[in-house]
């Protein structure tokens, strides 16, 4: 039997809440692709920032399911309608997450620091004028400001703070967000990165990238002393070639 994910007919909706779309499906596909690894990871605390309809956090809870009873789930959203719709979607699937209406993870950052083993984020990534970012309604689900990076750049340090030593982050980006630059930025914080899903639709090219704390990566300021390229360095070269190939394909279209 294939692993269960959230069923669209059971996903609740509201005119002010973003409904599951290609980006949501890409993120859940990434979680499905890594299902065995996620189960072996035994995450204790899982979290989604910006849960919207609840499609992703519900799917995560179902994917980890009864084989990972140890997991406790948090989900946040800036939009009060979204946390309510997430609650309904979770309930319709018989799973539970603790919900908070808050900006990113405000209120949790002090006490939950270094405790989250698994984080999933589908951020507002669409390039928009800066003044459209962070409204309380539907547009907060996509409005990402310049290059779609305004909210992403606020989320990344929060994720770094909340993730545990063994913490993994699955995050979705648009090609316009410059995911390579994001990976290099995360590398400076000691994170390895890998593309789990890449998908081009008529409108956009999406990447789901997994980040993890890689002890072999030199944190910024520390010069690498060993000669030659380390394994993570090779990993990043690979990532770079993958992403530039994608960009190339895009420009041809």
């Amino acid at each position: 039997m294939p692993p269960r994910i959230a069923q669209i007919r059971l996903v609740s909706s509201h005119p002010q809440v973003y409904a599951p779309c290609d980006d949501s499906f890409a993120l859940v596909d990434a979680l499905l692709a890594d299902r065995t690894k996620l189960l072996d990871h035994h995450p204790s605390i899982c979290m989604e920032i910006g849960s919207g309809s609840g499609y992703v956090i519900t799917s995560l809870a179902l994917i980890l399911g009864s084989e990972s009873k140890n997991a406790h789930y948090f989900a946040t959203d800036l939009n009060p309608h979204a946390t309510e719709v997430t609650r309904q979607t979770l309930e319709a699937h018989g799973v539970h997450a603790e919900l908070l209406t808050t900006n990113i993870a405000s209120g949790l950052e002090k006490r939950l620091s270094g405790m989250v083993d698994l984080m999933v984020i589908n951020p507002p990534y669409v390039p928009t004028p800066e003044d459209e970012v962070g409204s309380s309604g539907l547009s907060s689900a996509w409005a990402g400001g310049e290059n779609g990076r305004s909210v992403i750049d606020k989320i990344l340090p929060v994720a770094d703070n909340l993730l545990s030593e063994k913490g993994w982050l699955y995050m979705l980006f648009l090609a316009d967000n410059d995911p390579l630059q994001i990976c290099l930025q995360m590398r400076d914080k000691g994170f390895g990165a890998k593309i789990i899903v890449q998908r081009s639709t008529e409108e956009e090219t999406l990447h789901v990238i997994k980040f993890w704390r890689d002890p072999d990566i030199q944190i910024e300021g520390n010069e690498a002393v060993s000669g030659g390229k380390t394994a993570p360095q090779r990993g990043f070269d690979f990532l770079r070639s993958q992403i530039s190939r994608l960009s190339f394909r895009e420009t041809r279209q």
Binding site: P80, R87, L99, L100, T101, T102
Partner: peptide, 12 residues
């Protein structure tokens, strides 16, 4: 900070 239907609202 109000809690409605089990959801705390931490918006400032």
């Amino acid at each position: 900070f109000p809690v409605n239907k089990g959801i705390p609202n931490m918006l400032l």
